[in-house]
Design a protein around this nucleic acid. Structure first.
Lengths: 216, 216
DNA sequence: TCGATAATCGGACCGCAGTCCGGTTGATAT
DNA sequence: ATATCAACCGGACTGCGGTCCGATTATCGA
């Protein structure tokens, strides 16, 4: 099953980390979580995080690269949870059911993920232009979807189509939808309906390029 | 035809503008266009634009709000061109053909628009988080698509679905696709295929919620 | 032509993201 | 225990986006 091997290779971590480095990582992450909770994601500067953590600014940036990287690190645990559910959890999120079902399950789970961490996710995706597409987890979601779409409909441009499905889950878009009054169940229904339109059940294993035209 | 009235109301402009203000607007826009062409969108600071234009920094920001606003102003002409093609141009972009055809024509034209101004569009959409959804032109495209989708498939959540179609045309996404090796025709084909999957021809005027199931 | 008025102008100013490098400290081998 | 060295630390520094307000100037009525 080469799928799992490829996917899990996207989530490696360095083995050795000096004790002070590990301590400071925790200090910074805890400080960031605390400040975000109190002042909101937009009301916290990197200086403030460093000050609250009791470390220098340089430390924060060396560990996390930029503000987007700090947000990614904050999401790490929840993100791995979802990734493990995909790799080895029970179906339909994990393996064992037809691709179309797994796609639906993934999108459904991702909406939950979004709804629980919208602000930090948005920060991680928008702090720097293009950040979203460079983040390791995006690559993971994309690869997962692309594999499933290729299985569900070999005639599609799975690579492009999975980017597009993920675009519907962009934290910035969803934030705008929320601000426009869409509740979470409407967003969820919209995304699932989209998937159903794009990859209707029964499309599996058709000849490439053929689309169910309903006779003439 | 209330559609055109509503849409055109999104593109108003202030009537009176002082002579020096108008002169400086042109100076700034010309300077920005020149510097962007020479140094690339990312290599130009607002100070540099102001200096090149021979005006103060405050002037630039008061006229255009922020960097995203400057980009919007630079796109203004081309954007209005597309908007006028939609409102009163020849079909299939303009009125006069079934909604599904107009949707396809719009997406096709928008890919051309993207390909001609990707960098500046990306700047206008990503300079500030959420900028894309606040820009007047986005509201225009969204309203246009929503009206057409409502006509083509009354059972769909047209509001959400048009956001999603536009998400596939996000300048930041398309920039990432280009950086990943997708050529313009592949992107165009992907978007048009998406529209065909989401709103297949023959869906018009069906009963709400019914989807062509191709029998059992 | 000229004064009153309101809008515009522009550069000093602020806070923040991100960089840099000399000093410090934890890990390892002897 | 201690010497060695790589890795880490942290605060000063830079450049940029964005704000502010006193000076300036276009516009309009008389």
């Amino acid at each position: 099953m080469p799928e799992d091997v490829e996917l899990s290779s996207l989530a490696a971590r360095r083995p050795t980390e000096r004790a002070d480095a590990a301590r400071n990582r925790r200090l910074v992450l805890d400080a960031a979580a605390k400040l975000f909770a109190v002042h909101g994601v937009d009301g916290v500067s990197m200086d403030a995080v460093a000050r609250e953590a009791g470390v220098g600014k340089g430390t924060v940036f060396r560990r996390f690269g930029d503000k987007s990287g700090l947000a990614v690190a904050l999401l790490d645990d929840r993100e791995r949870e979802l990734q493990e559910g995909i790799l080895s959890g029970p179906p339909p999120l994990g393996p064992g059911v037809p691709a179309a079902e797994r796609i639906t399950a993934f999108l459904d789970a991702y909406v939950d993920y979004l709804s629980g961490h919208l602000d930090v996710l948005r920060l991680s995706e928008t702090a720097v232009p293009g950040a979203r597409y460079r983040i390791g987890s995006y690559r993971f979601w994309h690869r997962h979807l692309a594999i499933l779409i290729r299985e569900a409909d070999p005639g599609a441009d799975a690579d492009h189509l999975s980017h597009v499905l993920l675009a519907a889950l962009s934290a910035d878009l969803v934030h705008a939808l929320r601000a426009d009054g869409h509740d979470w169940e409407r967003i969820r229904a919209g995304v699932l309906d989209l998937a159903a339109r794009v990859l209707p059940p029964g499309r599996d294993a058709r000849s490439p390029g053929s689309r169910p035209g309903c006779d003439a």
